[in-house]
Structure formats: C-alpha cells, structure tokens
Simulated assay, not measured.
Amino acid sequence: MRIDLGDDEPPEISLIALIDCIFFLLMFFMVATSFKHQADGRPLKELPITLPESAVSLDPATAAPDVVAIGVDAKGGVYWGRERVTQLVLRERLHAVAARNHDQAIRIDGDMQAPYQEIVHLMDLCQFEGLTRIAMRARDGR
C-alpha cells in the first residue's frame, strides 16, 4: 500500500549552488595563472621594472650641503658617501647621526637596477633611528 505524503514536487537545480561553484572555479584559475616563472622555471623574486626618470630634478649645487647621502648599487651594495659599508657600520653611523640631530636630512641614491627591497630596508633603518627626513634621488630625464 502506498502512503500519500502530499503533492510531489519536481526536482530542481539550485542556481545559487551552481553560481558558487562557477565563481570558485573562476577564482582558482585566476590565482593559478597569476604565478609567473622565469625562463629557467624559477619563480620571479623581483618585479622586472625600470624605475622612472624625473622630469625635474634638483641641481646638486643647489641641494642642501648637510645632507647625508647613502647609495645602493645594482647588486645591493650600500655606500656611505663614496665608501662601501656593511649593514652593521651603516646602522652605527645612522645611530650617531640621529644622536646628533633627529632632523638630519637623508638622501638615498639608488641605482635603477637596485633591488627595491634594499631601498625599503634603508628607509626602515633610517626611520628606526628616528630620521624621518628621507629623500630619494632621481636621474634628470631631460
């Protein structure tokens, strides 16, 4: 004997669940294809960018004479003026400068091919010592 439980509803596909699945697959493929690799198969560790030139740059003759210049070469080497220094020596010198004058101006001269992380590390060191007047030097694009 069959028991009647009321009207039978026809089965239907839930569009909300289908849209969620399609959205999940779309996000998966977008994220999976965004990982780029170098030609030899290694993932990129730095952005392949060329830093822009400045249309207007200060003439070194008109710049403030008491600016501390810190340079970064293309391989990440750090220079105090024209003298190559280690990270430990750089930190000691920045500490000494900050002890004399917290308003001391610092100029970072970075090579166009310098790793951006090195520039950020220098800025962090300066700010850690309390030196906040930090400027970046750019090439004159004219």
Rank of each mutant, 00 (worst) to 15 (best):
I119V: 15
R42F: 01
D124R: 14
V97W: 06
S54C: 14
R42H: 07
L131E: 02
L44G: 01
A96D: 15
R133W: 00
L58K: 10
L51M: 12
I134F: 07
P11I: 05
F29E: 12
D7K: 13
M123T: 03
F24N: 03
D8M: 12
Q117V: 12
L125S: 07
D40L: 04
V56H: 10
A99F: 06
D124I: 09
Y116H: 13
V67F: 03
E92L: 07
F28R: 04
A69S: 06
R91K: 10
G41E: 11
L18T: 08
Q127G: 04
A63N: 02
D111A: 15
W80H: 08
R133Y: 05
T33H: 07
Q127R: 15
N101A: 11
R82L: 12
V68A: 12
V85L: 05
K75T: 12
F128D: 13
G110C: 09
P48Q: 12
Q127M: 12
I106S: 01
H121G: 03
I22P: 00
H37C: 04
A63Y: 04
G81S: 13
D111I: 03
R137M: 06
K45E: 13
T62E: 14
D109S: 14
R84G: 07
R133F: 04
E9T: 09
G141N: 12
I16M: 07
E12V: 03
M30W: 10
H95M: 08
